[in-house]
Design a protein around this nucleic acid. Sequence first.
DNA 1: TCTGGGGTCCTAGGACCC
DNA 2: TCTGGGGTCCTAGGACCC
Length: 414
Amino acid sequence: MFALVDCNNFYVSCERVFDPSVEKRPVAVLSNNDGCVIARSDELKALGVPMGCAFFKIRSLIKDNDVKVFSSNYALYGDMSHRVMTVLHDFSPRIELYSIDEAFLEFATGEMEDFYRLGTEIQEKVLNWTGIPVGVGFGATKTQAKIANHLSKQSSGVYVMPEDSDSILADTATDEIWGVGRRLAARLANLGVRSALQLRELDDQVVSKNFGVVLLRTVYELRGISCLELEDVRDPRKNVCCSRSFGKPVELLEHLQEAVVSHAGRAAFKIRNENLTARLVTVFVRTNRFRKDLPQYANSHTISLPEASNATSIITAAAVKALYNIFRKGVIFNKCGVMLQGLESTDVQQGDFFAEESFGREERLDKTVDSINQRFGKGTVFRLGEGIDKPWQTVRQWCSPHYTTAWSDLPVAR
DNA sequence: TCTGGGGTCCTAGGACCC
DNA sequence: TCTGGGGTCCTAGGACCC
């Protein structure tokens, strides 16, 4: 038996834990650059604001309905996520941290008969210990648990998929199924398949021939045959990408380069933290795709490093070189990013036969900078190449304090 | 004026090998 | 008329997820 535990309106709930004044009020949490709505309280959903809605489109609605708006505060959400997951570990050693606000738990059959009661216990403990409300769905497969979780939100927050699920699946639209997105749903509709029940009854040959093995697995999962295992041991990641839209449009190479230097530094830091090195460094730039009135341009360039590395200086130098290959004068850019690929563990390093030994100078420098910034806060030591004024920097106008991760932001109790 | 950021997996096709 | 059969690796693009 699988359970899917999912935090309700997670980012909104995190903000509410530390600011109870926004309880029972419509609340929106915005994406980076305060661009789109990426989390909504129930009150905001009731006002008809869709997920991913551009913020500027709902300015007047915000005013008229006294909506509280937050920029995203990932330091806070990451820490709260960790707290929730820690509590969940108490319920089963078989746990997969699926996303920042979701986890699958697996229970041996017969281990626990009363799953409804178990779900209620999970709910209560997470709420009491972290302040975050969750929904729990149980099913014979991960796909069924997902559907059950979805249904849980319509009632008490706990739902156990019944043995005979025909009527439930008949009421579940195909695009509500985990693994069926907009495109697949449209193609299925062409075959007259609109509900999960219809999909479940489809012929294996038809599915695999028309849609491939991925959807076939989903069909089996709907039938109660588990094809997607619990991934409790994470594979090492294969890519890292650091990118941001600019706070203001950027035209100068100088500013673009500052942003690339900054992203390259963050990307290198990320892989150092996971004991990985990269063989490929890709930089991409692009214009604002919504500005149909302006000339559009998007390009990327990849540089292969002679020797896999996680040194900030080496990755940054490659990134800047890649940028020079794709920069175009007169173009107004709105986003750039740095991707690291060909990641390998630091213990299986393939050396460069012709390279001179560097005696780990970069390594020692990075280590020192990382530890200073960890102790005294991000950006305490930074490279001048990132710029000082940073006119390109992402906007976060309504960010709440880092209540749980910065000493200076600790909430005060009276 | 103003529209996010980060990932994964699968497949088809091309280039190459014997 | 009629041009094999078996692989691997890589990449781009498409689909999905949160």
